[in-house]
């Protein structure tokens, strides 16, 4: 295991996590989400490279494709919040509770 890559991956994941939980702006949270995904992709890619395993590379490719689809969905939803006249923040979306 390459400690540099893994520590980078762990740092990315934790930063992403922090952004997701601590920030209140949807766009920033979404960036955190993407960071978490990419951290995982980095770790997967490292292992695939270490083992020379093509399966891992295929996984990386497919995951990136899925992340792109996810981004489309997520950004659409954030845009729709924006269009609905509310600020795209979590505090604006608190009607469902209890």
């Amino acid at each position: 295991m390459n400690p540099l890559v893994w520590s980078a991956s762990a740092t990315l994941f934790l930063f992403g996590l922090a952004a997701l939980i601590l920030r209140r702006e949807l766009l920033a949270m979404f960036l955190g989400l993407e960071l978490m995904v990419l951290a995982a992709v980095l770790a997967l890619g490292e292992t695939a490279a270490r083992l020379g395993d093509s399966e891992g590379f295929v996984a990386v490719l497919l995951i990136l494709a899925i992340a792109a689809a996810e981004a489309v969905v997520g950004l659409t939803l954030i845009l729709r919040v924006h269009w609905s006249g509310r600020p795209p923040e979590t505090e604006a979306l608190r009607e469902l509770k209890g």
Partner: peptide
């Protein structure tokens, strides 16, 4: 269940 997305996450 406060209704806040951040709490839920």
């Amino acid at each position: 269940a406060t209704g806040s997305l951040s709490d839920s996450l």
